[in-house]
Computed example of a mutant assay.
Amino acid sequence: MSASKPGTGLRVLFVGGSGVISAASVARAAALGFNVTVLNRGVSAERTVPNGVEHLMADVRDPAAVRHVLGTRTFDVVADFVTFTAGQAAAAVELFGGKCGQYIFISSASAYQKPPARLPITESTPLRNPFWQYSRDKIACEDVFTAAYRQDGFPVTVVRPSHTYDPTRLPLLFGWTDVHRMRAGLPVVVHGDGTSLWTLTHTADFAVGFVGLFGLNAAVGEGFTITSDEVLPWDAVYRAVAAAADVPDPALVHVSSDTIAALAPELGAGLLGDKSHSVIFDNSKIKRFVPDFGARIPYSAGARQIMAWHIDHPEARVVNPEYMALSDRLAAR
């Protein structure tokens, strides 16, 4: 690996590679000339592997199957998008130790202290989230990888994205159901008072910073936040979607996150552990390491991409009757 910007030809393995965050990074790495391999179960039809990218199928939870498909191969970079627990992290260290020059673990910016004691959030912000098990599990993964780096030199780099989206994903509480309600003139629930600040990062922008870390010796042992610099109150996020859906004045109603969590526990952890807190991220570090990085796609443009994708994919325009009823109940409060 090089301490400067890597050239083409690096052997890169994406573990996952077909998700909202990872697919754009696979495409960028391939476009830049890296020798890209994707390892996953091959079950996602939503995002396919680009032409020219090697696709290996195995369940990463089955180490024997992974060893079988990889054989004695080694990689300059392994990018891990599918480790979520400390046990899975320990298995990854055992599986890839000595077989890669750099192992990039996708953690989460939700692992940062909640509520944050100060803004902006930087890589030195403590990791602590008492509200959301997902975030605590990501912290535990980081602990495993960091211990392996300190004790045995396992070449980990940690990346913490925040809310990263592609054209298939709406950031609204109830997804397409909320767009339907906007167009029907029905009240649409926004958590809190709509003024808490949020950061939405287009996956194509994230990919520039992420792939830019590939092969950087100086990034081993380091952690990086990679997000947009655009910060929006939640009301502005909803209004951007409404504008893209040709709804000039959506009927937004505000309901406390605690109330939503009480009536919809499946949504509560993500609200109380992440979205209900204002977040502003300092991206100075990733910009120092990857000078090409800069989030260039504002959410107003991203929202139009999302709406265009949904127009082309009617199967995604699902109005959930349970969400309709829940929205009515919440709005009535």
Rank of each mutant, 00 (worst) to 15 (best):
I21Y: 06
S22P: 07
S25C: 07
V26Q: 08
V26T: 00
A27N: 06
A30E: 03
A31W: 00
G33Y: 02
G33C: 07
G33K: 01
F34E: 10
V38R: 03
L39T: 07
R41G: 05
V43P: 01
S44Q: 04
A45S: 09
A45T: 08
T48W: 02
P50I: 08
G52K: 00
E54I: 09
L56P: 03
M57G: 00
A58I: 12
A58K: 14
D59L: 14
V60E: 07
D62M: 14
P63G: 13
V66F: 14
R67P: 00
L70C: 09
T72P: 04
D76M: 04
A79R: 00
A79Y: 05
F84M: 09
F84L: 11
A90R: 15
A91H: 13
A92V: 07
V93I: 14
E94I: 11
K99D: 02
G101S: 02
G101Y: 01
Q102L: 08
Y103T: 06
I104L: 09
I104D: 00
S110M: 06
A111I: 10
Y112G: 05
Q113C: 04
P115I: 05
P115R: 05
P115T: 06
R118K: 05
I121E: 05
E123Y: 03
S124A: 12
P126I: 10
P126E: 11
P126C: 11
N129E: 09
W132M: 07
W132N: 03
S135C: 11
I139G: 03
I139W: 09
C141K: 12
F145R: 10
T146R: 14
A147F: 15
A148M: 11
